[in-house]
Write a protein that binds this DNA or RNA. Structure first.
Lengths: 183, 183
DNA sequence: ATGCGACCTATCTAGCAGATATGTTCGCCC
DNA sequence: GGGCGAACATATCTGCTAGATAGGTCGCAT
């Protein structure tokens, strides 16, 4: 039961906040879990169908258009809690930037600089973005939202990672300068 | 041509160091690229077959057993250099730890502590492991190995990431303690 | 001599991302 | 009021990918 269930957690989790359509689930995941999770329609719709067949979610006739809206059932909420407790499948690494830099000797310092600068810029952008979200979530914490504290925790993880990436990129640009200058 | 080619880079890159069998390619990737890359046999063997058909790698009758050993051809080396220059596909996020903590309100602080401690322990272990590799690679740098400087760069990235994860975990454990104590 | 562990080559299943196709509904400008 | 574009919504297909599984060879130690 360990394989799969990752998408299920995300979908059930999204619906645990409020009822919504498949489209809205995708939006919610991209916006609020965006910096550490993603789902595609190709996953969401089959998953919703399966979850409905199992009685974990149910249609809830609402929404702007003809689109069907789903809500979490009591059984679905129990299942979500159970899934959250399951062991965490190891995160697959796969960092394209590092793969290229590892063979950087074939490219030379100049080309590598470009790659590292791209990485630094993305980290800086991400850090700024997370900072903007932080003030929103902090406001929710101050307003007494119990779950907001946990959202702050995941936000903090993103910030730590982005700052680490930034620091590494600056350090690496200096190293590449030295490599370019010396030999 | 952007999709795929990620596995090709890793396989061609491994063979650029020295000729080896498919099994050894997997070993090499797991050992030296392990902290930011992975490949499975299910990917490696079909890829090797395709690369051979394209003339990018060629059998080089050697190796301990009946197993065929592959070497990089001149054409393959050119292809690798070209692939390294291609734009980097965005890294898929998917962090199972953060997915669970985001919905941590459903689990409670105690359960979350366990998840975060696991994350902290993995980071500490990783940091120690990377430190051991660092002394080896540093020795290669001192011995005048030109490519070793780039290996040091990717190593440093792993260390930055692991330290960030460690710092976040410590910070988060304190936050969870506070959540547990107050309400 | 056999049994263990390493080396080595596959193949299959299901998860998954991204692209694509198709249609609906809304707000708004002209 | 009619058309246009943006957001909304559902669905499917392709190919990459991880992990499991299964089979086979070889050297060596007990």
């Amino acid at each position: 039961m360990s394989r799969q269930s990752q998408t299920e957690i995300a979908v059930l989790g999204a619906l645990s906040v409020e009822p919504m359509s498949g489209y809205a689930v995708r939006q919610a995941i991209a916006q609020t879990l965006g910096h550490f999770w993603s789902e595609s329609f190709g996953q969401i719709y089959p998953t919703l169908g399966r979850l409905e067949a199992e009685g974990l979610v149910a249609p809830s006739g609402e929404g702007r258009t003809s689109g069907s809206t789903y809500r979490l059932t009591a059984k679905g909420r129990r299942r979500l809690r159970a899934l959250l407790q399951e062991p965490i499948p190891s995160a697959p690494p796969r960092n394209g930037t590092l793969l290229r830099l590892f063979f950087g000797g074939l490219l030379g310092p100049a080309e590598c600089r470009g790659i590292v600068q791209g990485s630094r810029d993305r980290a800086a952008k991400s850090l700024a973005h997370l900072g903007r979200i932080r003030v929103e979530v902090q406001a929710e914490v101050d307003a007494g939202d119990a779950g907001a504290a946990y959202r702050l925790i995941t936000l903090s993880a993103g910030e730590h990672t982005a700052r680490a990436q930034l620091a590494w990129a600056e350090e690496t640009l200096a190293v590449l300068d030295a490599l370019d200058a010396l030999p």
